[in-house]
Simulated scan of single mutants.
Amino acid sequence: MKALICGVGGQDGAYLARFLLEKGYDVVGTSRDSMVASFGNLRTLGILDQVETVSMAINDFRSVLYTFKRHAPDEVYNLAGQSSVGLSFDQPVETMDSIAGATLTLLEAIRFVDKPIRFYNAGSSECFGDTGATPACETTTFCPRSPYAVAKASAHWLVHNYREAYNIFACTGILFNHESPLRLNRFVTQKIIQAAARIAQGCQEKLELGNVAIKRDWGWAPDYVEAMWRMLNTDVADDYVIATGRTVSLEYFTEKAFAYFGLDWKDYVEVDPSLFRPADIMEGRANPEKARKILGWCHAVDVDGVIANMCGAVRS
């Protein structure tokens, strides 16, 4: 089996590449310019020399079609595109193009190749908007509250349409927040943990955060890439919510991260209203029961394990 991972250099792409290699796959990973990309996450995981990296412009139909014909993948995983909710408010056009536009290009290329390809699309819990106390499942109505979420919702329905109209084996994983030591520092979870580690080492600083009352379902990224693979290895293509089923506040995450280093977060954290998003989700809750029943998937690490693993990686 051969898999093509679009966005192989990111957190999910790197963990997925490692997972598939362990399954015996040949793995091809794409970047807009593979000659200059660092692929640091692949290097961190010790698998860079096992992944064939190639250049592919995900918004260029000819580039995508050429790559598909040259490498003939059995499975394509679309993990590329702008990945920051906050940044999407500053770059809405690029966000829509790199997520919805790129998904359409990939689906069209699959439609034109002679070989049947199974396609995974990275969806997002952001599509649901604020769930309140009711956990979201696959039939919950979308109510996106950011350009990022609007783009992900558009990509979701493109996948749904191509599955029905052209009989393409295409799935969307509606993933709730998932973290790891490979997270970039611009993501709030990594920002918190890196700051706590520096302060514990004697750095005199204050950590500025936005709204710490928001609540999210945080899982462990290596668990979630297995769910992606399981979606493409079932008999019927469908969409799945992937989450732990446990939601906690950002304040909880911050408190536990600082406590790992023996610190009281209240002594070092300041809330900065300028960091609040123009429109934010106060509460995100999930019901991953369908994935458990049909895919046989369940998370192995909950939010407390996520925090401990990320803090441990900094300390080591």
Rank of each mutant, 00 (worst) to 15 (best):
V212Q: 08
R292F: 13
H299N: 15
D217S: 07
K290V: 01
S31V: 01
I214N: 04
S55M: 02
F261E: 07
A279R: 07
V8W: 05
R18E: 15
K2L: 05
E205I: 13
T44M: 06
V93W: 12
P278T: 08
C171M: 10
L184E: 12
F61I: 07
D272F: 00
D239R: 06
T247F: 11
F89N: 03
Q201W: 01
Q201T: 13
F258Q: 04
V306K: 15
G24W: 00
D33W: 03
M228A: 13
A153G: 03
K256R: 11
K2S: 08
G262Q: 12
I193H: 09
E75N: 02
R285E: 09
I5T: 04
G210S: 09
R70L: 06
T139Y: 03
G7L: 10
L207F: 05
V85Y: 03
R118A: 08
L295P: 13
G132T: 04
K293F: 09
T53S: 00
R70W: 00
S124P: 11
P147F: 04
D33F: 02
T247A: 07
C6T: 10
S316R: 14
I110G: 15
F187H: 09
V85I: 12
T30C: 11
R70C: 03
V113A: 06
G210Y: 10
H160A: 13
E208C: 03
D238I: 00
G219Y: 02
E289R: 12
E255W: 04
R118E: 07
V303T: 14
A3G: 12
Q201Y: 11
Q201L: 15
M231V: 08
I281K: 06
D239K: 06
I110W: 14
P116F: 02
G40Y: 03
A200M: 08
G129D: 04
A37S: 13
F89V: 06
L16K: 08
C143Y: 06
D12A: 07
L79Q: 05
L21R: 02
F19I: 03
K69S: 04
F39R: 06
I294P: 02
G305S: 13
L48M: 01
A80Y: 03
I117R: 14
R43S: 15
A57V: 00
Q82S: 06
T247Y: 10
M231N: 02
Y268M: 00
G123Y: 07
D267Q: 14
E94K: 08
Y224A: 11
G13C: 13
I199S: 08
S88G: 10
W229G: 05
Y120Q: 05
M282D: 14
T44C: 01
F261W: 05
V93L: 09
N121S: 10
S34N: 02
P73L: 00
G284Y: 00
A308H: 15
Y240A: 00
W157G: 01
A213G: 05
E75H: 12
I174A: 03
P147I: 04
D26V: 03
A155K: 13
A221N: 11
V51P: 01
L209D: 01
S146P: 10
P116Y: 07
D12M: 05
V159R: 10
A122D: 13
L295V: 07
G312F: 15
I192A: 11
A122P: 07
T30Q: 01
H156R: 10
D97Q: 14
G296Y: 13
A291P: 09
T134F: 08
L175Q: 05
D60E: 04
D267H: 10
